[in-house]
């Protein structure tokens, strides 16, 4: 690893850690009902929203009612986004006169944005009108992120409440998450991005003169080029903060109008992990023991740094085949060195690898380099981060509730070892919680493996793979790992915009999102109904380094056992083939 890489990674981690406490504390206050400073300004709007929507803020919900509200909102979200996409040809704010999105493409994108995945099988600037981008996709970026945070807060209430039949009011949690957290942060970030050159306009595509005229395939001289523009900054800000990841442009965050300067790149990268990391502190604050939040944040950071090091080192070492040919791939004053295929020269190895690991750790999915072009080992780390269940930071809310499920499994296993009833944060963990935890872990995993099996077993699936052999398997495995764990990044190298993949990946996104949320809320309801027990000599402390190590072991063993055979057939065998 170069000194430059160590400096950049160190700065990034320090910047994240510096934001964790203030933002985490602020978010904990927001969900406790008091938003510092913004209360005075936004409280009237909040009351107005409740009045218009007929929400009774005093009425709390049981876990079933809470889950029904999540399902109702998500159903309406999917159907409304689908309708806007299909009708965009006759709707306003479509200066490029784009036609309706195809039915299977509309289904995939609707499900993708409602489930906080933002998998994109389409090219944004040539498929979606400005109206679709603004009113369908960007709105879902806010809603789906706020749903994830609301479910997390409901689970935290399950730990903090005693003998309670309720876990909060979903509509209040949703509104407060958007109004006091996502909207202010997005507004600030969008304004900074505009100042850096991220485009924000409703004008038609721009026709500009080429600096170097060229000729097309038929020999005609080409002197101008159309440059796509649009309301990008407002979408980019929330796509990063809400761990959505869906780019306004097809090239996503490698596009110069979406990520134009070093400062824009750093802030967008920071925004990916900002809320997921800070929510750990909010968790500690809300359960009344900040050490619990730091322990989970420590576990996430350790996995993140190890897999980041693997990716940076693998990419910096370069392609083994080129090394065997005697090509110099070492970093020097004249070249960045390493494997630069699929990477922008302005980002280089470190920024590209850091973004790839952050975006897959955080269930974000935006990319500034093409993961398909990474070395097999460098591509394995981002893929495995998704396969771990998106619990290393993960999506906003969803990452931490996934991590809390792993914490429940860890205390259960520790309880089995010493023969005592497991407990976490003063709540006894029973058979029901373990059944729910099993569902949360198994369902996305099953979707990844069964989906990949379908992809490589069917003619339609195989026909979409661009590369033969193990790399082709990696392309399909990555796609289903991304969809089932609601990440949304694409490995590339797979023609996924077909009814086969749009349908199958859409189903994977739905199962990976909602069939995880339902058991998590069931766990919240079950825990809230229990009484708090005082910790005794047989209680496993859950804020110590020992617990962090146990937790990491459980996450890695589950991830390794579930995916090792598939990874062995894909990136592992490909790395061995390249090395020999």
């Amino acid at each position: 690893m170069t000194n430059n890489a160590i400096l950049q990674i160190g700065l990034f981690v320090l910047a994240i850690l510096a934001c964790v406490k203030p933002l985490g504390l602020y978010m904990a206050r927001v969900y406790s009902g008091h938003a510092p400073v913004l209360d005075r300004v936004l409280r009237p709007f909040e009351r107005l929203i409740y009045r218009l929507c007929g929400v009774n803020t005093e009425q709390e919900m049981g876990w079933r009612q809470y889950a029904e509200a999540v399902i109702a909102l998500s159903l309406i979200s999917c159907v409304s986004v689908y309708a806007v996409e299909r009708l965009q040809g006759v709707l306003p704010l479509n200066p490029d006169l784009l036609p309706a999105v195809s039915p299977d493409g509309a289904f995939n994108a609707a499900v993708s944005f409602a489930s906080n995945t933002n998998w994109q099988s389409y090219s944004g600037e040539t498929t979606m009108s400005y109206l679709t981008q603004m009113t369908a996709l960007t709105v879902q970026n806010f809603l789906s992120a706020a749903v994830g945070m609301a479910v997390l807060i409901a689970l935290i209430r399950g730990f903090t409440r005693e003998n309670s039949a309720t876990i909060g009011n979903f509509w209040v949690d949703l509104t407060r998450g958007i109004l006091y957290i996502l909207l202010p942060l997005s507004l600030i970030l969008a304004l900074i991005l505009v100042s850096q050159g991220v485009v924000q306009t409703l004008r038609l595509h721009q026709q500009v003169a080429l600096l170097e005229p060229t000729v097309d395939n038929e020999g005609h001289r080409v002197v101008t080029q159309q440059i796509a523009v649009g309301p990008a900054a407002s979408q980019v800000a929330i796509k990063q903060l809400g761990t959505n990841g869906g780019g306004f442009f097809n090239a996503n965050s490698s596009h110069p109008l979406e990520n134009p300067t070093p400062l824009a790149s750093f802030l967008e990268l920071l925004a990916i992990l900002l809320i997921p990391a800070s929510l750990c502190y909010s968790f500690g604050e809300l359960v009344g023991d900040r050490r619990q939040g730091w322990a989970l944040l420590g576990a996430m950071t350790m996995v993140f740094l190890v897999l980041l090091a693997v990716t940076v080192v693998a990419e910096q070492r370069g392609n083994p085949v080129l090394s065997q040919l005697g090509i110099d791939q070492a970093a020097s004053a004249l070249q960045s060195g390493g494997n630069m295929e699929g990477k922008e020269t302005r980002f280089g190895i470190t920024d590209s690898a850091l973004w790839a690991v952050a975006t897959t750790a955080a269930s974000n999915g935006s990319v500034n380099s093409m993961h398909d072009c990474y070395t097999p080992l460098g591509g394995l780390a981002p893929m495995w981060l998704m396969q771990l269940g998106e619990v290393v930071f993960g999506g906003v809310g969803s990452g931490l509730y996934g991590m809390l499920v792993f914490a429940i499994v860890t205390v259960f296993l520790a309880g089995l070892m010493v023969g005592r009833t497991p407990e976490y944060l003063g709540k006894k963990i029973g058979a029901f919680e373990m059944k729910m935890a099993s569902l949360v872990i198994i369902l996305p995993c099953a979707m990844v493996l069964l989906g990949t099996a379908c992809g490589v077993a069917c003619d339609q699936g195989r026909g979409a793979i661009f590369n033969p052999g193990p790399h082709g398997l990696s392309e399909v495995l990555y796609a289903f790992s991304s969809a089932s764990n609601n990440n949304g990044s694409a490995f590339a190298g797979l023609a996924a915009n077909s009814p086969f993949y749009n349908g199958l990946l859409g189903l994977a996104m739905l199962v990976g999102r909602y069939w995880v949320i339902i058991p998590v809320l069931a766990t919240a309801g079950s825990l809230a109904a229990k009484k708090q027990v005082a910790s005794g000599p047989g209680t496993l402390p859950t804020h110590t380094p020992l617990f962090v190590i146990l937790l990491l072991a459980v996450i890695i063993v589950v991830g390794a056992l579930s995916y090792f055979p598939a990874l062995a057939l894909g990136p592992v065998v490909e790395q061995l083939l390249l090395s020999n």
Partner: peptide
């Protein structure tokens, strides 16, 4: 074709509601 994809979305959330009630039943059994 729109009917097919919309029916798919509605069917998924319908099954999700069933799952919710199934888990609720499972909890009461426990």
């Amino acid at each position: 074709m729109d009917i097919v994809w919309l029916a798919g979305i509605i069917a998924f959330f319908g099954v999700s509601l069933l799952m919710l009630h199934l888990l609720s039943f499972l909890r009461s059994e426990d």
